[in-house]
Amino acid sequence: MIASIVTVKGQDSSIKAEVMPVAVQQDIVDIAGGSPEHTTLVKAITDANLVKVFKMNGPYTVFAPTNAAFDKIPAADRTKLMKSKADLAKTLKYHVVGGNWNSVTLMAAIKHGNGVVELPTLAGSKLKATVEEGKVKLTDETGNAFYVTNADIMASNGVIHIVDGVAMPMQQVTAAKK
């Protein structure tokens, strides 16, 4: 089970992911499954045997890449990623953060962190969140940056933020270069 309250590393311990009661009946997988823009994500979750992970009780926050975000990955790399269950699972877990990081909580943590907050992910890596031109910008450990394009989609087990890129853990990038 993912911890329901996560402190922000390197920040004052007074900033925490909110735990909010949610009256929504659909979980994160159900909501993503109903979106025509997230068919690749849902297939990836299924192929990586992570449906139970994304359906478990939260709360947690998912930065959900669109089909177009997956299409930004070069075709050969995308095919390789989708065929490796271990790499695919790690990549998908890199989009999951413990706690309910709705836009208000996320913006407050960024402000409190003097413009940046590091979010520990289920993959064990961190996403760096900043604000650029009024949008939340996420940067993965490889330096790949992408943006939240639609925030605060509430699910029964957390919150979803739609993103226009795919976070890649360092391990996949290193392996792809060999």
Results as ranks from 00 to 15, higher is better:
Val24Thr: 15
Leu81Ile: 08
Lys90Tyr: 02
Asp87Glu: 12
Leu127Asn: 02
Met20Leu: 13
Met107Gly: 04
Lys72Asp: 12
Val117Ala: 13
Ala108Trp: 01
Val22Cys: 11
Met20Ile: 12
Gly143Phe: 08
Val97Ser: 05
Val19Arg: 14
Val97Asp: 03
Ser125Pro: 00
Ile73Glu: 11
Thr66Ser: 14
Ala109Val: 04
Val19Phe: 14
Val51Gly: 02
Pro65Phe: 02
Ala108Cys: 02
Gly124Thr: 08
Glu18Trp: 09
Val22Tyr: 04
Ile45Met: 10
Tyr60Leu: 08
Val51Phe: 05
Tyr94Phe: 14
Gly99Ala: 10
Ile73Asp: 08
His38Asn: 12
Ala76Gly: 07
Asp77Asn: 12
Val53Leu: 14
Gly134Ala: 11
Thr61Phe: 08
Gly58Trp: 03
Val24Leu: 13
Thr40Pro: 10
Trp101Cys: 04
Leu122Met: 12
Tyr94Thr: 12
Lys128Tyr: 07
Lys43Ile: 00
Val24Trp: 05
Lys16Asn: 12
Glu118Arg: 11
Asp12Trp: 02
His95Lys: 10
Ala44Thr: 03
Thr105Ala: 15
Lys55Tyr: 05
Ser84Met: 04
Leu119Glu: 00
Gly113Ala: 03
Asp140Gly: 06
Glu37Lys: 14
Val136Ile: 15
Met107Arg: 15
Lys90Leu: 09
Met82Phe: 14
Ala108Arg: 15
Thr66Ile: 06
Thr139Met: 09
Gly33Tyr: 04
Asn67Leu: 10
Leu106Ser: 05
Thr79Cys: 03
Gly34Lys: 06
His112Gly: 15
Asn102Ala: 06
Asp71Phe: 03
Ile28Met: 12
Asn114Lys: 15
Gly34Ala: 07
Val97Lys: 07
Ala108Glu: 13
Glu118Met: 14
His112Tyr: 06
Ala48Trp: 00
Lys43Pro: 01
Thr91Lys: 02
Ala108Lys: 15
Ile28Lys: 02
Asp12Glu: 09
Asp77Phe: 10
Asp71Gly: 11
Ile28Arg: 03
Lys85His: 07
Thr66Asn: 08
Met20Ser: 10
Glu18Asn: 13
Ile110Tyr: 13
Ala69Leu: 10
Val116Lys: 15
Thr39Pro: 09
Trp101Asp: 00
Thr142Lys: 02
Thr91Gln: 08
Val97Phe: 06
Lys52Gln: 14
Ile73Gln: 11
Val24Gln: 15
Ala69Asp: 05
His112Arg: 11
Gly34Trp: 05
Pro21Leu: 05
Val42Trp: 08
Lys55Gly: 11
Gly113Arg: 05
Lys16Met: 11
Thr105Asn: 09
Glu18Gln: 12
Gln11Glu: 07
Val62Gly: 01
Pro59Leu: 03
Gly10Leu: 06
Tyr60Met: 13
Leu119Asn: 00
Ser14Tyr: 10
Asp71Trp: 03
Val19Gly: 11
Asp12Pro: 03
Thr142Asn: 12
Ala86Gln: 14
Lys80Cys: 04
Leu92Val: 08
Ser13Ile: 06
Ala123Asp: 13
Leu119Gly: 01
Thr130Lys: 14
Ser125Leu: 03
Gln11Phe: 01
Val136Ser: 07
Leu41Asp: 06
Leu106Gln: 04
Val96Lys: 00
